[in-house]
Design a protein around this nucleic acid. Sequence first.
DNA 1: GCATGATTGATTTTT
DNA 2: TCAATCATGC
Length: 671
Amino acid sequence: MNSSLLSTLNEGQRQSVLTTEGPLLIIAGAGSGKTKMITHRIAYLLESGVQEKEILALTFTNKAGNEMSERIRSLTGKPLKDLLTTTFHSFALRILKKHIHHLGFHHNFTIYDGQDCTAVFKEVLREKEYDIASFDIRALLAVHSEIKTSRIKSHPLYTPDIASLFETYEQHMKLYNALDFDDLIINTLKLFEEFPHVLEQVRSRFTHIMVDEFQDTSAMQYRLIHHLAQEHRNICIVGDDDQSIYSWRGANYQNIVQFETDFPERKEIFLDRNYRSSNTILSAANQLIVNNSDRKEKTLWTDSDNGETIITLESEDGEDEARTIIEQMRSVSFREQLGWSSFGILVRTNHLLPTLENAFMLEQIPVSVTGGQSFFERKEVKDLIAYMRVFVNLNDDIALLRIINTPRRKIGLATLSAVRHIKDALHISYWEAIAHILEHKEDYPSSRIKALQQFYDLIEEYQSLFFQGGRRKSKVLHSLLERIEYRSFLLCEYPGNENGALWRYSSMETFLKLFSRWENDPENYENNIYEYLQRLMLQMREQQDKEKGEERVSLMTMHSAKGLEFDTVFLAGVEDHIIPHRRTIEENEKALEEERRLFYVAITRAKKRLYISYAKQRKVGSDYMTTSPSRFLEEISADLFSFPTEEEQMSTDEHLERLSSLAAFLESKEA
DNA sequence: GCATGATTGATTTTT
DNA sequence: TCAATCATGC
């Protein structure tokens, strides 16, 4: 590395880069130049003679991993084909593909996402003749996840009855040759702990390990890297306990404490200088986060000017909020000559996204939405993926259930329950049960046989075409779509909305284009269709590459904004019961602290301007609910705020008072 | 009896 | 916006 590159780093960053041997703990506050430090550190490792393939850099999302290797590539000017920057789950996938046969799975396993797992559990309930509606399936799956990853030992919801249901659930998963996200980590750990030669093989390859976003790793993920690093001890973890926002998913920032115990000889570096935000924004963030009790004490500082005050926007309801934000954004964009990509809008929950997105579309402002429903989660795209999944694994019951009557082919509830009956009795998959029925035609009405036979033949025919298709599988899928007349099916499904149906069809075509691009990329010639599907399942929710060239406003959840920054940030829906979310208010102080960290993350995304917006009422289902501004706003001193009208300077208290008197007035008017 | 169409209800955050 | 439940038509 030439010295001019090193000289762009501050002292903490430089120490982080130069400390290449032995354990290293870096606490990197928001906006402290963390990514720059990490990329420089890896470039420096390479320059010091460490081989590409000996470095393992674990990131939080696949996208972050790709960006990181891209940046290191441009820093070093090398292709870096063997440098592994990846997520824990993708890393686990690589190991399982090679070694999972030790655990009784086939290497072509299917990965199930949350939706698939819900469907599996519903199948179990159905099989055992429970009333599905009386179960809170999401909650039960969450508890089961906590149990099986040893985060808890017991739970009031996890009665012996429920536990036995989940035993059946796991049996089904095995029958389907399917793994959920937890299984990826659990099974890799199992391999490491029960098959020493597997661990040895992986351990000897990676001599230098880095973990980014360490505050959001789970205890099991930590064990994974602990196994890899405990011998050579060249492990560098980078995190910020104040930005831990995934504890509900098993993230455990106590891992930092565990690391300190496991690696007592570690060096520690604090990056506490913030380069991102104005002094005003940083002060607000600092004032907010000191209210958390459970944290490493630290205060970020900056050389920046105060800059502009934080502006609060008050609207009547969600739609009015969208209009207000657009109005403000237009005026800032015009005044400061900023392109649309300088703006980010962050919300707490996914369902706040569509209202905003629609308003932007109406105003013809280009917007790119992350989170919420991703492209790959669109119903019709999932249908097409389900066909692929069935071709690849006929025992994938969940995918088969999805397409068995899509498009409609007269296999309804009654026919399905006949199949189910056979399946449950013989402990086989749906596909095998259908085959069984077709071998005993005489026991069933001919109409039923006809529908099932047509489906069976269709799948068999296209499955063999699919595998004969070589690298032209996308063509086979295209002809499948024509054969099953998916287009006219969509037109029937959305009567009177021809454009909507065609739009949906076009997203299938887009998917096919993406898939065909993958097939024809020489880089993937070694990868087979199984790997494509496995990777796809891990990347479903991630933002696909935006078309270059066009400036877009970014619209996303606060969670997916982690690691990003914008010149101007709008926080929308900053109301009590949204942030902090009502579920967390009911829970406990710890949950509330996580909400506060989330709000902290949101605030610290802003460089120059921060707008905080709330509405007086919000639509819940079909009617409106009166709301009040987030309690977190009271933790930030009023002199950092101003209001767009600026007719009068109000403190937050006065503002709240005015709000409630207005609400009372409106109520009396309605009465 | 069975598939399909219409209505209703409810939604934290994601690898 | 999506899925589960209830009503309708073949």
